[in-house]
Amino acid sequence: MNRRLTHKVLLLHLSIVAGLFLAQFFLPEYHHTNLARIMVLATFAAGYNVLFGYTGLMSLGHAMFFAAGMYATGLSVYYLDFGALSAFFLGIAAAAAVAVLFGLFALRTSGVSFLIVTMMFGQACYLTILYFNTITLGDQGFTLSNNLAPLEIGQQQFAFSNPSVKFNGAWILFSISFVLSMVIAASPLGRVLVAIRENDERTKLLGYNTYLYKLMALVVSGSIAGAAGAGYALLFSYVGASFAAILYSIYPLLWTLLGGAGTTLGPLIGTGTMFYLIDIASGYTTAYLFVVGGSLLILVLWFPKGIVGSIRDRWIKWLP
């Protein structure tokens, strides 16, 4: 299988990036904000995909990275009057730091043990946010709209309440993570990660320090997830503990699986599909947990490779 950065691949990714950008001029208002939100969440899923899809490490604690980004950004704006950009980068740095610390510890395990360690850390992180409620304001959370100054680039001021700032902020965030995924997938690093996914022992025998590679994947994955969390806080102006709860560790897994783990396009397709599935279903039934549960089951039983994965298998073999 050739997964290298070919003309076709580059063209496909750039046209998706461009298409998403152009979408804002055509979409009606409601779908405009939806797409903005989907792109932020798809960034979260793209981060998850680096670890799960390419490296084969399933985590049930990714909400901790999302929350690390979200809280570092949110708290620095709320208490320290940080500007949007510095708060955003602080968010990424915090998520990366959490990922390094966590990885040094958790990557000694693998498979199901790794999964449970991630889950336990995720839960501990959630409880920690509740524990320091005098600072984090606990489950109730806080809003940033009264504290966040508009972003200034040159002469231009961009207020975060402006829908197109939201859209384009989300677009930049997603595009970077998307292109980064493409680059990783095509790079030697990506190929080592896939080798680890397929057979950790053999990769080790080939002379690769798989522990280091996994740590790298985890840090990249956690940082992207953290960037999504930071972006969410800035663009949607809310920081709360519910984003650290276990459900938000299950979501990126679900989105990635639905779209296709180990494909660059999967996270976006999965997040978008799930979003509209729930949105449309909630118009007919309150039982949307069924939709979540049912789609997980259907995926596992019949489409373990997800939407993009199945397309790749059947038709477009060159998809990265």
């Binding site: 399933m58 049930l60 498979g111 199901v112 999964l115 299950i250 897994l253 699986l257 947990l289 069924f290 979540v292 549960g293 049912g294 789609s295 997980l296 089951l297 995926l299 596992v300 039983l301 373990p304």
Partner: peptide, 14 residues
């Protein structure tokens, strides 16, 4: 093991 976890999460919600 991993498919089972995903499947039983689905079952949990159902």
């Amino acid at each position: 093991p991993e498919s089972t976890i995903v499947a039983t999460i689905g079952l949990l919600y159902i």
